[in-house]
Computed example of a mutant assay.
Amino acid sequence: MIFITLGSQKFQFNRVLKEVDKLIEKGVIKEQVYAQIGYSDYKPKNYSYENFVDRNTFSKFMDNCDLLITHGGTGAIITGVKKEKKVIAIPRLKKYGEHVDDHKLDIVSQFKDMGFIYAVYDVQELGEALTLIRGMSFKRYHSNTTAVIQIIDDFINLNL
């Protein structure tokens, strides 16, 4: 199953939803698709969606998907990577009225350069990305929370 999450910012991201509809119609996407479309005003014709889902529903879809398509939000990317999902991130762009600036480009590029995700910068390349990502492997996420806690603990103990 493919899970699409477009975040909770008050901006549309219609071009992704439209492209997925086209890819389903062309038979490029054959599996089930579910989307959390946020403030997008395009309503998908060929797959299920809701504007927003609660945390439990979001978690269920994230757990059950094989592939995550996201808007380039840090939270969605990290959640997908932590759950060892294959992630395609498509950054929102200012020129399409999808955000106030192009900071999503930097976020997506960083995660791509670190080897965690597949980045799509032109939505018309999504079909090719869906084919290529199936055979790709990505780096696994390793939390360094324990190391950070140890550093803080050591600092506190040194200063007592």
Rank of each mutant, 00 (worst) to 15 (best):
I88A: 00
M136N: 09
K10A: 14
F61W: 13
S109Y: 10
Y141R: 05
E125C: 03
N46S: 13
D153R: 10
L126Y: 00
L93C: 01
A89S: 12
H71T: 05
D106N: 10
G97R: 12
I149S: 11
I37Q: 04
H142F: 09
P44Y: 08
G72K: 00
F52I: 13
R134C: 04
R140Q: 13
D66P: 02
F116Q: 07
D153T: 12
S8W: 04
T131V: 13
F13E: 01
I4G: 01
T79M: 06
V148R: 09
I24S: 03
L130S: 03
G80D: 07
N64P: 03
I88E: 01
K83W: 06
G73A: 01
E84T: 09
S137L: 06
N144K: 15
G7I: 03
L160C: 07
T145Y: 12
Y49P: 04
E125Y: 06
Y96M: 07
E84G: 02
V33A: 02
E98D: 08
I151R: 15
V100M: 10
I2W: 05
I24W: 04
V120C: 02
Q124K: 15
V16S: 02
N56K: 15
L23P: 00
Y141L: 08
R55Y: 14
L105D: 11
I24H: 03
C65V: 05
M1N: 12
Q12A: 14
Q110V: 05
I69H: 01
D122K: 14
N56W: 07
K85I: 03
M1R: 12
I29Q: 00
H71R: 02
I117A: 06
I2V: 11
V33E: 05
S48K: 15
S48A: 15
D106C: 01
T74G: 00
S109N: 14
I90F: 06
Y47H: 10
D54T: 04
D63Q: 11
P44F: 08
D113A: 12
R134L: 08
V53E: 10
Q150V: 05
D154W: 05
I24Q: 02
P44D: 13
D54F: 08
L67D: 06
K82M: 14
M1L: 08
G7P: 10
